[in-house]
Amino acid sequence: MPGRTRTLRFVIVAVLALMAPLLTPLAAEASAPPAPAVGSCHTYDWNTFLGVSDSSAPVSCSGPHVARTVFVGRLWTDEAYSSMLNDPKIIQYMVKQCLVPTQQAIGPWKTVAVAGYDGSFFVPTSAEYGAGARWFRCDVSLPGAGHLYPIPNQHPLASPLSPGQSRCIHLTSQGGLPVACAAPHSYRAAGVVWVPGSAYPSRSTWLAVAQAHCPPIVRTSRWYLTGVSSVRWSAGDHYLTCYRPTTT
């Protein structure tokens, strides 16, 4: 689960089958350390954001903070720690569980489509897992390119959405990275298009919809687009985002 594979980035990805939850407590949980609290705020750094665990203490939400916990779920597994970190079923299970609480913390799907906020998840440390901890935590943050920006103490986070909190695209050698517009960027979200239908669109469908609708939104011959993952589509987000170039 290295780096950005643990974030809920706004890209088109395949979704694996979800892990079926068990209905009985795991024996190891009897003496487990307490789980994190929904609503807690945090000030971790970029390396922690890219990591798998965060053992720092929460901070007051009335003061500066870069993340807020919006959901705490349960890991229904007793497999080895290293195996758990790399189990695609568990990763996709956490992504699925984090998705809607993350959306609700940011705003309606139409707002999420143009906001720079992102979701991520954390699991217990190896020592906590060994002591019986079986939780996972979903956080919302405002990432740039190697930096986390402060988030407001309000709900939803993107109401109103400030220019610096909007979603932009930072171009890298690997392609475009969605970031908060406070970060260096090459494209800024200019508007969204609702993609009709019930079946998840193919790549060619995303492109066809964008070619038909993005030019009048961006009003320039050069533009950028992002779609959504199939899990977000299933959750009700059918928005395609159109971006116009910037010089910022």
Score class of each variant (00 low, 15 high):
75 L>F: 12
161 L>W: 10
81 Y>V: 07
182 A>H: 02
125 T>L: 02
172 T>A: 01
50 L>C: 08
77 T>P: 11
10 F>G: 08
67 A>V: 04
84 M>I: 10
77 T>G: 11
27 A>E: 13
222 R>F: 07
58 P>E: 00
214 C>F: 03
198 S>R: 13
144 G>D: 00
119 G>H: 05
71 F>K: 10
28 A>W: 06
174 Q>C: 05
22 L>R: 14
8 L>W: 09
171 L>M: 12
127 A>E: 13
52 V>N: 14
150 P>A: 00
236 G>L: 03
100 V>L: 07
171 L>A: 06
169 I>S: 05
57 A>C: 02
89 K>L: 04
112 V>K: 08
187 Y>W: 14
153 N>V: 00
18 L>W: 06
243 Y>D: 07
136 F>M: 08
53 S>G: 06
62 S>A: 14
14 A>I: 05
170 H>Q: 12
59 V>K: 10
125 T>F: 03
212 A>I: 07
37 A>M: 12
150 P>H: 03
95 V>H: 15
236 G>S: 00
101 P>W: 11
25 P>A: 04
89 K>M: 13
144 G>F: 12
103 Q>A: 15
113 A>K: 09
72 V>M: 09
145 A>Y: 14
189 A>W: 03
212 A>K: 15
188 R>S: 14
6 R>H: 06
84 M>H: 07
238 H>S: 02
178 P>R: 05
178 P>C: 02
182 A>N: 01
63 G>V: 07
123 V>Q: 01
44 Y>K: 04
49 F>I: 02
219 R>A: 01
166 S>N: 09
134 R>G: 02
220 T>G: 15
173 S>G: 02
9 R>F: 10
210 A>P: 08
